[in-house]
Design a binder for these strands. Structure first.
Lengths: 152, 152
DNA sequence: TTTTTAGTTCTTTTTTTACAGAACAATAAA
DNA sequence: TTTATTGTTCTGTAAAAAAAGAACTAAAAA
């Protein structure tokens, strides 16, 4: 019953899916996420997702739960309706952007720790390393400013 | 691992390796890259890498070539010496930073294309999507400014 | 109480990734 | 010419990832 999706929508789901696979999502999660961004409804049921993407129940369940745990997807319910209605949190991109910036900290820290443990023989490289760590920190701060100042 | 690496260096290679696995590198590539950043020499030979990481020749070859193709590693040669001396390009982080920013363009473009194909019914979400694409572009531009204005 | 709904969890199967080991190739050295 | 060096490429395999299918569960409906 993927008849409610246009050819263009299916194409966008595949293309966005591939891009998101490149960002670390499994094929199924990538397509579920894409579907939720592309489809004409605010929120979709489990079975709609399942049928639209032609996935098994287990694949659908696992994909949705992965996205829920990652905070990329949410759901709401309706009174007197047991189904969950899943939606993409892509609209809440400000938060994930902040999270991604903060996630750079361990990377910056290990670069610094490597710098501190390097031989003094390779001065040029060492300076570049230290500069890199300093730039990451600067970049984190400035990026957070960018988003905080972005259109209320 | 071989004896020319200290315990601390081995530990750093593993920790940095794990971080880089999280950034999409295979275990072997991640450790080769980490080794090149941590080790006491400017550049290492194929066999040094092989022995230091206890990898097979094929795993070493494939890992190094992957990193070469990604531009994360380079090599130099010495006159009258057939060996290649591999080094990390992490010191040239400015270029990879620019590349990463430019690589956001396809993501931004598909968000825009999805926006243009969305139903008009979900005005809020549509606005958020469009804002997101606009922010990515702004962010790309400002990030390039950040790096261009960085020290000298 | 039995059945249906809306999923979850367990078991298998399929596919992909990552690597080892051996054979191979190109150049240099003996 | 033969041997050694410096890798690359091919073949096989173990392990991990991804997903299917079936069994299961909790709550609601009949």
């Amino acid at each position: 019953m993927k008849q409610n999706l246009t050819t263009k929508q299916k194409e966008l789901i595949e293309r966005f899916g591939v891009i998101q696979e490149g960002m670390g999502l499994s094929p199924a999660s990538a397509r579920v996420n894409a579907l939720l961004v592309v489809a004409d409804s605010e929120a979709l049921t489990f079975d709609y997702v399942r049928e639209a993407l032609d996935l098994s129940k287990s694949a659908t369940s696992n994909a949705i739960n992965t996205l829920l745990m990652m905070g990329q997807v949410g759901y709401k319910t309706k009174p007197g309706d047991r189904k969950r209605y899943f939606y993409s949190k892509l609209g809440e991109w400000q938060n994930s952007f902040r999270d991604r910036m903060n996630a750079l900290t361990p990377y910056k820290e290990i670069i610094n720790e490597i710098y501190e443990n390097r031989t003094v023989e390779t001065e040029n490289f060492n300076i570049e390393l230290k500069e890199f760590a300093a730039f990451i920190e600067y970049y984190q701060e400035e990026s957070l400013k960018l988003i905080n100042n972005w259109k209320k």
